[in-house]
Amino acid sequence: MKSVTKAYRPISWPTKGAGGDTGSWRVRRPVVNTQICNKCQICWVFCPEAVIDRNEITIDYRYCKGCGVCATECPTGAISMEKEE
């Protein structure tokens, strides 16, 4: 970062949470049932927000917007959308 001269320095830098803590947009929260989950990683590939951990299948609720694509695409029905409290 320091090697860039001031005249060419960009205004923005890549950071998580560029739109704020987007988890607050959520109405329903996805919950993974680890007993049914077969770790096929389909939820991970379709998550538009990249909040699902590929190996552990855990969800980062700080940024998850609760779109429900993971729950719809899950072939075993291991992800359910539960009401946000």
């Binding site: 590939v45 538009p48 700080r62």
Partner: peptide, 29 residues
């Protein structure tokens, strides 16, 4: 296959797109 896709993420969590946005979904791949 899905399991062969690399780990690298170029779209960072918490961006300003709508939930379920197909554009960020495609841009990740």
């Amino acid at each position: 296959s899905i399991k062969q896709l690399p780990d690298i993420e170029q779209v960072l969590s918490g961006n300003g797109a709508c939930g379920g946005c197909p554009a960020t979904m495609a841009l990740r791949i």
